[in-house]
Simulated assay, not measured.
Amino acid sequence: MSPARRAIAAFTRVHGAAPKGVWSAPGRVNLIGEHTDYNDGFVLPFALPYRTAVAASPRDDGRLLVATVGDDGTVQHASPVAVADLEPGVVKGWAAYPSGVAWVLRDQGVVGGADLVIAGDVPAGAGLSSSHALECAVALALLGLAGRSVDDLPLVARWVRRAENEFVGAPTGLLDQTASLCCVEAHVLFLDVRSFEAEQVPFDASAHGLEVLVVDTRASHSHTDGGYGARRAGCERAASVLGVAALRDVEDLDGVLGRLPEELRPLVRHVVTENERVLAAVELLRGGRLAELGPLLDASHASLRDDYKVSAPELDVAVEAAKAAGALGARMVGGGFGGSAIALVPVERHDEVVRAVLAAFAERGWATPRTFTAVPSAGAGQDR
């Protein structure tokens, strides 16, 4: 059963009536362009077919009642909270994500209460943006219940980022929210995070005999942990030392590295070279040269592993096993310290690559990873 149908069924069971509407948003995978978004750089994500759905109806008492429904139909309720009383730190755990969105939208005049029932199939903790799928779906639901237009999706993405940064306490950039809201089927989203200038670039791997294989290592990660925030702070410090607004403004990499404290040089090197890789990848896609993406993916992973130091043993093993079995290139995706990797794989080598990755994990006694083929899918919207 789809997340939307599960959400509707659970909502009807809990509240005794069908919801006024259902909104959903997808997880995402980033083809290339990692840790560049909060440096005003370039990213190249696409939406996954896995989604989070929110069945919603308005309340007239100003309270927010949120529940989630599991695959088995089990419903978990969060404590009710008045929208007027929402402040950072008031709500803890998973309920902080939808509550944070309501808190931000309160400043935009969306002050009514709501019943929300949430269901999803985006793998949690896999670096595939499950939290942002939840927040984007909640944002669209609350705006929809209030009768507010959602024509300006980049603005909604900024609201969601504020909820994540200030209410949840995760210092994320704009990549995940924008991908979930703005991606379209059969395309990757080439986004300049500074200007928000965007281009939908066609991406049909199967037409080239290729696929993007996702390996969820099941090594969980969290953006609220200190490693992500420390790197973001390091980038901001480096930009200040160099006298630029953001690291995307660094042009002469070799010339500026000597001006930086030693511990900041690898961060700058990654961001600058990763932006270059995104631009190179877009040119390949525009020219229909998908099979040439492999070396860029490999270089991205090496940079994230060696310079940015956000990889993990599970990610490195997944990447190396996939490449040894015939993948054209592979890299970790997401914030790092766990989560998922992607591999660009000739379709005829799919089974061989999957077997190699599973065997490599089994040899080390690690949990069996989840694998699936990622197909660029539709962004967020109203289901009914």
Rank of each mutant, 00 (worst) to 15 (best):
D298M: 12
T273K: 12
V256N: 08
L296T: 01
A281I: 13
R277Y: 14
K323W: 10
V272P: 02
R286V: 02
A322P: 01
L315T: 06
A302Q: 15
E263C: 08
L315Q: 13
A302V: 10
E274D: 15
S303Y: 13
V282F: 00
S303A: 13
K309T: 14
L285Y: 00
G258M: 01
G288W: 00
R265I: 09
E283C: 04
A302T: 11
E283K: 11
H270M: 11
L297C: 02
K309S: 15
P261W: 01
T273I: 03
P295V: 03
D307L: 07
E251L: 08
L290H: 04
R286Q: 08
R289A: 08
P313T: 09
S300W: 09
D316Q: 08
L297T: 03
R289L: 02
D316F: 11
L293A: 05
E262I: 00
A318G: 07
L296E: 02
V310W: 13
P295R: 04
A321Y: 01
L297P: 00
E320T: 10
A324E: 12
L279N: 10
L284N: 11
E283M: 03
L267P: 10
P295K: 05
A280R: 11
G255Y: 05
D254W: 07
R286K: 14
R286P: 03
R277T: 02
V256K: 09
E251M: 06
L267H: 13
V319I: 07
E251N: 07
A321F: 03
L284K: 09
S311D: 04
L267F: 09
A324W: 03
R259F: 09
K309D: 15
V317L: 15
S311H: 06
H301C: 08
L264I: 07
R286E: 05
S300R: 11
A324K: 13
L285T: 00
L257H: 12
G258L: 03
D298H: 12
K309P: 10
L264S: 04
D252K: 01
A322T: 00
D298W: 05
V271I: 15
E276N: 13
V319K: 04
V317Q: 13
A312M: 11
L315H: 14
R286S: 05
G294M: 01
R305L: 14
S303W: 12
R305I: 11
E276H: 12
P313F: 10
G258F: 03
G287L: 00
A325P: 14
R286A: 06
H270K: 06
E276K: 15
L290Y: 05
V250Y: 14
D316C: 11
K323V: 12
H301P: 09
E292K: 00
G288N: 03
R286N: 06
A291T: 04
L315G: 09
L279R: 15
E274L: 04
D298Q: 12
K323L: 05
L284S: 10
L284W: 07
T273D: 10
V282S: 00
R289Q: 15
E314K: 08
V272S: 03
L285W: 00
S300C: 15
V268Y: 01
A299M: 12
L290G: 04
P313G: 07
G287S: 05
V250G: 15
R269H: 05
E262C: 01
V271K: 08
P295C: 02
E283W: 06
A324L: 09
R286F: 04
A312P: 12
V268L: 09
R289T: 00
V272A: 07
L290S: 09
L304T: 09
R265D: 14
